[in-house]
Structures are given as C-alpha cells and as structure tokens.
Simulated assay, not measured.
Amino acid sequence: MTAKKIGVAILFIVGAGVAYAETPSSLITGYTAEAARATPGFAPSAERGQSLFMRKWGVSKTMPSCATCHSDQPTAEGKHVVTSKRIAPLSPAVNPKRFTNLAKVEKWFGRNCKEVVGRECSAAEKADFIQFVSKGSQI
C-alpha cells in the first residue's frame, strides 16, 4: 500500500469505532481532505466526476472510458466488455453496497484507473467520481 493510500485509510479510521462503516459521503470527505492538501480549497465536483467517467482516455481500445463497461448511467447495470460479466450499478442510490468499504473502493479505483485512465487516479478525481455517481444519474 502506498503512503498516499495509507494516509487516506488513516483519515477514515482515526476516531472510528469498531463498527464503523464507510459511506459515500465519508469517502468523499476523506478524499477531499487529501486533495485539499495539494490544492487548498478543493471541493468535489459532480461535473468533473462525470467528465472523468465519460472521457475516452485512449489508453485501452477495448475499454476507452469508464462508461464502456459501467454504462453511461450510474444507475444502470453494466457489463464488462471482455468477460461479459455483469456489473452492478455504480450509484449508491440504487446499489446501497457501493462505496461502503475503503479497501474495495481502493482496489477497484486502482485496477480501473490504471486500465482505463493509464495511471492511478488522484484523490481529487476519486472525490469527484463518487460525487458524480452518488447523484444517481447524469447531471
């Protein structure tokens, strides 16, 4: 785990009780705090999150954007273009299990950002992305 990920994990764990569970809001808060260290005054933006989600990054021909597999609506079910595996909706509004476990969130951001974006996503991008999908549909 990188120092950056450890820092994010600590933000979520400090002061938390044993039964603490993450929420989309708490994840946004943690990523926002991390992003604000690099960019004072940073505030998450659903518009930037939508742009990240829809953008064709040019890294992968089979998976040029997040929407390629996740559908262009965060409330809809997606399908992996290579494996044809069904993907549950990203929106916590219709899939309450989404964005409730930091380890899973980091795992999937790590895997998907590297494959689609071509690099690890920043804390600001993660905050924006969760802000967007939490809205439930395109803005």
Rank of each mutant, 00 (worst) to 15 (best):
F42G: 10
P44F: 06
A127Q: 07
Q138E: 15
K135G: 15
R37P: 00
P96H: 00
G118C: 09
R37T: 10
R98W: 04
A21G: 09
I10N: 08
K79V: 05
M54D: 01
V82I: 15
L52Q: 10
F99R: 06
V116F: 07
S60I: 00
E125W: 09
C121P: 01
R37E: 03
K97P: 00
P40S: 01
A3V: 14
K79Q: 11
A88N: 06
N95A: 05
S84M: 10
G17M: 04
I139G: 05
G136F: 12
S51L: 11
C69V: 08
L11E: 08
A9I: 05
F99Q: 09
H70K: 03
P74E: 10
S134W: 07
W57D: 06
Q138P: 08
S122L: 13
E77H: 05
G41T: 05
S84R: 02
P64W: 04
A33L: 14
A19I: 03
P74I: 04
G30K: 13
F42S: 08
C69D: 12
G49R: 01
P74Q: 14
L102V: 12
R86F: 03
M1L: 12
L90C: 08
N95M: 04
Q138I: 12
G15H: 09
L102H: 12
F99H: 08
P89M: 10
V59R: 11
V81Q: 12
L52F: 15
Y20T: 12
G49W: 03
S71D: 14
V105W: 06
V8P: 00
M63D: 14
A46P: 07
K79R: 13
F99P: 05
P44C: 04
S122Q: 09
Q138D: 14
V133G: 02
F109E: 01
V14W: 03
A76K: 13
P44R: 03
E125L: 10
L52Y: 15
S84L: 07
C121R: 08
S26T: 14
T75L: 07
H70Q: 02
W57C: 02
V117H: 07
S65Y: 07
A46M: 12
V14E: 01
A33Q: 07
L52H: 12
P96D: 03
G30W: 05
S26E: 13
A43K: 15
A103R: 07
